[in-house]
């Protein structure tokens, strides 16, 4: 199981949980599982998120590996100029 940390707005959407545990070995599995198990997160997941895995930020690479002991943090989708 991977522990996933949520930012405040997402936590509010699922009853105030700031951390949840999901079964995921890759970024794709993580996002699919979140969408399936936490429908309230769906609007934000559709708008887009970035994911920090062990302090490094990833956007879209489905097959980015996630270790069971990885620190996983959902972030608002990054923008740049």
């Amino acid at each position: 199981m991977v522990r996933v940390r949520l930012w405040g707005s997402l936590a509010a959407a699922i009853g105030g949980q700031t951390e949840i545990e999901v079964e995921a070995g890759t970024l794709r599995e993580l996002l699919d599982t979140l969408a399936r198990d936490y429908p309230a997160l769906q609007p934000q997941l559709e708008r887009g998120v970035s994911v920090a895995i062990d302090g490094v930020i990833y956007n879209d690479d489905w097959f980015t590996p996630i270790r069971p002991d990885s620190e996983v943090v959902l972030l608002a989708r990054l923008k740049g100029g």
Binding site: W7, D54, G55, V56, E71, V73, L74, L75
Partner: peptide
């Protein structure tokens, strides 16, 4: 610093 939990969530490398 390295190991700090950032205000936006992750731990900095």
């Amino acid at each position: 610093r390295e190991g700090t939990r950032a205000s936006y969530g992750p731990t900095f490398p």
